[in-house]
């Protein structure tokens, strides 16, 4: 009972936050509110037992994305100048996309049912064997970190490579200024 209430309350607060973000005129305020949105999302993921997803959401959405947005706003202006009217074609497109998404929702299996595809494939093996094999209390963590360990290692390598590429691209200006200084001296 209380768990259902928590899920509903968090979802309603998510909708409320999205509405508040939509009407913000100050972009810094919008960035701050999107941080709140990420934290709410992470709480909801914890409620749905997806602890690893919640972890990523809090670290990327709440931490890194906020800082990246702020870095972008430091390069630009952060007050929206003119009040833009409603774009009717955009509203039409958004309504179409939303309707399609809701229509797609009618086809997904119910939450936590025993005969869902996700429960009938390898889940039994994981449930029975993981305590014996790995003895990690959280099953999702056991699957991600041990059964799919090489997959996770590959993902981490990709992200690490992307991070190095971004650092190389961003660090160029600073290296140039260093060489200029050394020439001058």
């Amino acid at each position: 009972m209380i768990i259902y209430f928590t899920d509903i309350a968090l979802s309603l607060m998510l909708i409320l936050t999205a509405m508040v973000i939509a009407v913000q005129r100050n972009l810094l305020g919008a960035v701050m509110l999107s941080g709140i949105y990420s934290l709410l999302c992470a709480s909801l993921f914890v409620c749905l037992d997806a602890v690893d997803v919640a972890f990523t959401e809090a670290a990327v959405g709440g931490g890194v994305a906020t800082i990246l947005f702020l870095g972008t706003l430091a390069q630009t202006d952060y007050e929206k100048k003119s009040r833009v009217g409603i774009s009717w074609s955009g509203l039409f497109l958004v309504i179409i996309c939303g309707s399609l998404l809701v229509y797609g929702l009618s086809d997904i299996p119910g939450f936590g049912l025993a005969d869902n595809p996700v429960q009938t494939y390898l889940a039994d093996v994981y449930l029975v064997q993981s305590q014996k094999d790995i003895a990690v209390p959280n099953l999702v963590t056991a699957v991600l970190a041990s059964y799919r360990g090489y997959d996770t290692l590959g993902e981490t390598t990709v992200i690490f490579t992307a991070g190095i590429a971004v650092l190389i691209l961003l660090g160029r200006g600073k290296a140039d200024s260093d060489t200029v200084e050394s020439k001058e001296s």
């Binding site: 309350a9 508040v20 810094l28 701050m32 709140i36």
Partner: peptide
Amino acid sequence: MLLALISAAIGETVYDKILAV
């Protein structure tokens, strides 16, 4: 949580919002 969200929504300055976050 709801109260903090409201204070972030109606906060006048950016500092109110930072505090709310």
